[in-house]
Design a protein around this nucleic acid. Structure first.
Lengths: 202, 202, 202, 202
DNA sequence: CATGAATGAGAATTCATTCAT
DNA sequence: AATGAATGAATTCTCATTCAT
């Protein structure tokens, strides 16, 4: 897990772009080397196999993802604010770097390879448990409804986020993800809110 | 869109299995022919290219999907019952034929190829508009909450469904999708319900 | 161990030629396909890997070698005649098909690969035990000297045979192997003979 | 033929080890540099090409071999003693440094390259002519039998030596070469001895 | 309807070697 | 004396596809 060199970051970025453009099948050593402007063998100085590149890629985004969650979770704001911050941060991240959307929610890509599939699963699980922690905090604090399993609230949030990002990507980034994301958050906020939940006759 | 022959169905089924086992990269003519027990050239009697196989595959499932929706939507039951029927039907379908889950929500697989990507998008859109119709019916009938955009309710339902199926697949079908799906529906039903929604002070 | 097809025999023969010309390093799929006049992928119809080709090659010669030994050993001539027949048959075989000499006594070639190294060892061992059987027969019959371990007589015979063939090959087949082999046999025959051996004062 | 530097000797030794472990195909610049613990380009400071390394290697062993023969031949002991000394010295040398056995009798390794093949042939020829000189001395002195061509006696000795060493290597040094070598010498000594040879009716 | 044989294009990777530092 | 980065050529092997039978 050594820190990545410049070239390694460059290779990972190019890989993400290639995947975003044409799926994992476009990610060939040839395409990659062409994209970076070096020869094919030169790639092997920086990653000793193609699998290593993908491992590096997933590791990098796992770290990034964790960082986002950590930053938000660490504070002691109300759960609702945390949740909002996380969703907005994600939409922001994808909007800034669209190709990322082709990799992060595309578990199928790595199905081929046990090691990679495991890494993908970890990323997904990590996100889920961060969300769960926040939701539980919100439920405990009375911010969020407690008439439904917290896991289902998480599933609804994650599912809606993932679906919107996927649709955005399939539309070739054809709508304003930040804006649509913000309005989606509004609805999600209402849905999970304790106000008006069954049993709430405040 | 001629009806599929037996052999064609067999090929499509084998294709789905291969994709489910090891991703799209396992779907090679060689693997396919071996799985079916015929020679490689023989495949070309039934589909004139690999792309045609995938087109057939997607077409087949598009039809199946439409059929499910059509059956449910056509009736004049309350929206809530229709929604439930649709979700249950989907979970049922996947539980009966797990490999399907590797194909139906895996848009990335077909990113490679414009024609196929288009087909995938259509399937997704179709499902979405059926759901939207039902949700709108529910809102109009006062069954479903009207304080949120119907599109967002649809996004929440679809997103949660897709997420659960994806997790099921990634867990290698490691939990009882039918049961988990049913409890998920309970929560979704509550979430979309008008009872207790903001503004509902009935 | 299925019988070899025509093409397979052709491939094996071409392999032997390539090895004879420039060592194992010349045996590349490219050179091989060029030598035969087909494309590189076409080779894979007939052997599913390069290793399989070498396995086929060794298996083929193991069979041939066994056949020669079997033919001679089976008869009930005196040991001396059998020994002569075997040596002559070997020189004959190499003279007829010189490239064989580059493969049969070149254990180093296959050192790379455990499976192949094993096969080579078997061939060598087989030859040795056939020779040993004959020598023992000769000793018992009083034809061959019994003042030395039979194993050493075998070593002397095999060693001299191998050395002569190796020199012939390194000289680029620059002398008449049949003739030189015949005279070598004369000497070997005398060496192993019981007449004049220590203890023989007949 | 400048004397070798320390590094050069180190490189040659590492080369021999690599060849012994996995054949000539294991001798790559990468493996070599890794074995020594320097970078690949660094090798080129010491030998300007891979071929030069192999030339150095063969040159080194040619010198060593000549030294052994020279030491023994120079003395004026009886031929039998000289012969024994040479064989024992060889077995000793291999036993002390087993990887050598993978290189010295493995002409095939260098078949690839004209220059190297020539060097190998020289080493072989040198050994042979030293042996021949001794044998002729022995024949003249009446120590060795004169009823067979001296060349054949040499072939028998060299052949048996080479065969035993080869078998020792293929058995992964699985027997005591020194001891087996000594008993082999006993037999060879008897075989070449004039006592009991045809015509000897002492 | 099916196959055995074949192929051009391209896959990942390794080779010996060079060069600027 | 040594290295990190790079490369052209070659390696084994797989891909989707075609064609004569």
């Amino acid at each position: 897990m050594a820190a990545l060199t410049m070239r390694q970051k460059e290779i990972i970025e190019a890989s993400v772009h290639l995947i975003a453009e044409g799926g994992i099948q476009q990610l060939t050593i040839k395409n990659l080397s062409r994209a970076i402007g070096i020869s094919e063998p030169a790639l092997y100085r920086h990653f000793h196999s193609k699998q290593a590149i993908l491992r590096g890629l997933l590791g990098f985004f796992a770290d990034e993802s964790r960082t986002v969650f950590e930053r938000v979770t660490g504070s002691d704001r109300p759960a609702r604010e945390k949740l909002q911050a996380i969703l907005i941060a994600h939409f922001e991240q994808f909007a800034k770097y669209p190709p990322l959307s082709a990799v992060l929610f595309s578990e199928e890509i790595f199905q081929n390879d046990g090691v990679l599939a495991q890494k993908v699963l970890e990323i997904m699980d990590t996100g889920q448990s961060y969300l769960l922690k926040i939701v539980l905090q919100g439920v405990t604090a009375g911010e969020f409804r407690d008439d439904l399993p917290a896991e289902h609230l998480v599933a609804v949030i994650m599912g809606a986020l993932r679906l919107m990002v996927t649709k955005w990507r399939l539309s070739k980034y054809g709508f304003d993800l930040r804006r649509e994301g913000a309005t989606l958050w509004n609805s999600l906020g209402v849905l999970v809110s304790s106000i008006g939940a069954a049993g709430d006759r405040g």
